[in-house]
Design a protein around this nucleic acid. Structure first.
Length: 684
DNA sequence: CGTGGGACTTGGATTGATGTCC
DNA sequence: GGACATCAATCCAAGTCCCACG
């Protein structure tokens, strides 16, 4: 698929890392220990249901529950050192009221259109104490998931043809056929494995007569069905304002009813409250299971999780849940087992929720703790390159890659179950090439492998001699398909990391290196220019991180065209500019001749015009540069998952950039904690 | 130790909504 | 107001990491 967008150049900050072992600032012996304290307390501390007698007034009940949140033990106090300890009292006062109450005012605008204004009291969960006993909540109430709409049979006029002859399919066979028909334009349907898997699963849904007739997928003609769906989606686009509005309102109603839950004292947004509809499995890359039928999920497949004393969600009439449980050690509200890989899918809360936010915050705090001891760890693995033991050398070289190149850990995967992709620990001999000399560099390692989502990682990178020699050693007497690190896996590596720092795992390095790179790049790149220029700098810093993490995208389909459009605009602006300049010149000459007030004013007007056009041109040029540089790079993932948002918030505050220029609405909701707590001097 | 299940994060693509330009 | 481009929301697959079990 996206097999060949490799990046030829090496990563941005190769020099900045791994080479600073001379600094010995890790005298501290991590004070911030036992972050992960819950590990120890296995005690299934049953939480109390003090007033669980009457189910009706759940609100009143859970209001009290928050009091039961365990008192802050000193072990986690460092998490809250972020400077607003003093607001504690205020917060507790607020705590008395019910926080999730919304005030909604409906006003009628002059045109009769409803203007909805919502003022939600913002709950600052980050100013509160966390559970330290491993529980995730005290109270949880929700309405359960929304199921996929039932299958609507095709109208009789839409026909399926087998071997050129029309054939009416049974409902279940027809439904599966429509899944295929809907994908007809997609490359997937041309792939052998996809077709084979599909056909096998489709036959399972057929009646015995159908099965005996339909024996060859190549004789199946889905084109009428496909046309029908295209027409449908076209019709949907052509719907009138009113019809669209109606659909929108219905969606909104569904969201209001099923899209929220009450967790502890607060109303929280659910991330995915809809059950995944049936369809054909679309694996990424060379997935052996692509095309298999993802079956329809029924209430009988669903496990509900909620608190005992909540109003339990009702299954649709005539159905039952698989199970209702009350496990407050987990965050999910509902789950089911998917039939392709047999893995469990969950319904969980939105990133703006407390439960996700706390975890996110904690992630960055762990990365910051790594910052404090990364020098020590680097010194350690460099030392280990010399170890007598092979397994230690392998561990040390792998860790070096994870640190320097921000590779993923690389768990083993079951062969034949998924696409063949690797991470650091699962690299094979065939994925690297060694060049003692390449061009003017020594000891170059070339990486070429498929990583997560079958995105290609291609990089040539000079390494230290010792690493190089070790790699040669690891390669000795091995076949291309053998493991490069045959004495290592992620669990060994992570166990080692755990000993180096509490809470340290391979992925922390990715978070750490991404965030520290952003901070450095922002320092380096930020100009004292206009706001658009500053934002370009930000995007460039962001881009450096995305390149480091190998976050790629397929170039947008319309990329070339839209680039051309932009260039046209630039050209046009340039013509405008020279015209404006000419006019200014003329006005000046005019003024010189007449020296009157009127001509003076004219000069000013023209000067302003030139200035304005110059600015516009600048903006367009900046936009063009930005877009060109972004062609194959996806910024979103790093922004959302790897960059400590407080770095960006601080940068905005420092340079007077409105936060909206960096984070859209959703992102601001997710990072509300960071926006609230970071000031302009925040240091990652 | 290895293995598999479970929970949770990370990831690019797709879809749908909104903005922009003529 | 419609065609097109862009952006945000949604989707759901694919990772990481931990733990229980034998």
């Amino acid at each position: 698929m996206s097999g060949d967008h490799g990046r030829g150049d090496s990563q941005v900050n190769s020099g900045s890392k791994g080479s600073d072992t001379h600094k010995h600032k890790d005298k501290h012996k991590d004070k911030e220990h036992r972050h992960k304290d819950h590990k120890k307390d296995k005690e299934r501390e049953k939480f109390k249901h003090s007033n669980s007698e009457h189910k009706e007034h759940s609100e009143k009940k859970h209001r009290d529950k928050d009091k039961e949140r365990l008192k802050h033990s000193d072990s986690s106090s460092d998490k809250h050192r972020e400077k607003h300890k003093d607001r504690d009292k205020e917060k507790r006062r607020e705590e008395k009221g019910i926080k999730h109450k919304k005030k909604i005012k409906d006003k009628k605008g002059t045109d009769g259109k409803k203007v909805k204004k919502e003022e939600e009291e913002k709950w600052k969960w980050w100013e509160e104490e966390r559970y330290t006993d491993g529980s995730k909540w005290r109270f949880l109430e929700h309405k359960g998931p929304v199921f996929a709409p039932p299958y609507e049979p095709l109208p009789d006029k839409v026909k399926f043809y087998y071997d050129g002859k029309p054939m009416k399919l049974s409902a279940s066979a027809e439904e599966v056929a429509t899944f295929f028909a809907k994908m007809l334009d997609h490359e997937y349907t041309t792939k052998d494995i996809f077709r084979k898997n599909f056909f096998k699963d489709w036959r399972k849904e057929m009646t015995s007569e159908e099965k005996s007739v339909i024996t060859d997928l190549n004789k199946c003609d889905f084109s009428e069905m496909s046309e029908y769906f295209k027409a449908q989606s076209e019709a949907r686009k052509q719907m009138s304002k009113e019809e669209k509005q109606k659909i929108k309102e219905e969606n909104e109603r569904l969201l209001q009813e099923y899209g929220f839950c009450i967790m502890d004292n607060h109303k929280e947004r659910i991330g995915n409250f809809r059950i995944e509809p049936p369809g054909l499995f679309r694996g990424r890359g060379d997935h052996p299971k692509m095309g298999m039928l993802k079956r329809r999920i029924r209430p009988e497949d669903i496990i509900i999780n909620c608190s005992k004393d909540s109003k339990h969600p009702k299954p649709p009439p005539g159905t039952k849940w698989k199970e209702v449980r009350h496990d407050n050690k987990v965050t999910w509200l509902a789950s089911w087992t998917e039939n392709i890989q047999g893995s469990i899918k969950y319904i969980m809360l939105n990133p703006s929720s407390r439960i996700k936010g706390e975890k996110d915050w904690q992630k960055y705090e762990t990365a910051r703790r790594l910052k404090k001891c990364v020098d020590r760890i680097r010194a350690q693995y460099r030392e280990d390159w010399k170890s007598k033991e092979m397994r230690i050398r392998q561990r040390a070289v792998a860790l070096y890659f994870i640190d320097k190149l921000a590779l993923r850990a690389g768990n083993e995967k079951e062969e034949g179950e998924t696409a063949d992709t690797v991470g650091c620990c699962s690299l094979r001999v065939e994925h690297i090439k060694l060049y003692p000399k390449l061009d003017d560099q020594e000891y170059v390692v070339e990486f070429d492998f498929l990583g997560k989502d079958s995105i290609r990682y291609y990089n040539k990178i000079p390494v230290e001699k010792r690493v190089f020699k070790n790699l040669q050693l690891f390669l000795e007497n091995k076949q291309p398909e053998d493991d490069l690190f045959d004495r290592l896996n992620t669990s060994i590596l992570n166990k080692h990391l755990q000993e180096l720092m509490d809470g340290l795992t391979a992925k922390v390095f990715r978070t750490y290196n991404a965030s520290i790179t952003l901070q450095q790049q922002l320092k380096e790149l930020t100009s004292d220019d206009s706001i658009p220029a500053k934002i370009l700098s930000y995007n460039r810093a962001n881009r450096a991180v995305a390149i480091l993490c190998n976050h790629q995208r397929a170039p947008p389909k319309t990329f070339e065209k839209s680039m051309q459009n932009l260039q046209n605009k630039i050209d046009e602006k340039q013509t405008q500019l020279s015209a404006a300049r000419k006019q200014l010149k003329a006005a000046k000459a005019d003024h010189k001749a007449s020296h009157d007030d009127k001509s003076k004013k004219a000069v000013e007007v023209k000067r302003k015009a030139v200035q304005r056009i110059e600015e516009q041109l600048m903006k367009l040029q900046v936009q063009a540069t930005d877009r060109e540089e972004n062609k194959q790079i996806a910024l979103g993932t790093s922004k959302l998952n790897y960059l400590d948002p407080r770095i960006s918030v601080a940068w905005c505050k420092k340079f007077g950039i409105p936060i909206e220029k960096i984070y859209n609405k959703t992102q601001r909701e997710k990072f509300a904690w960071a926006i609230d707590m970071a000031d302009k001097d925040y240091e990652f």
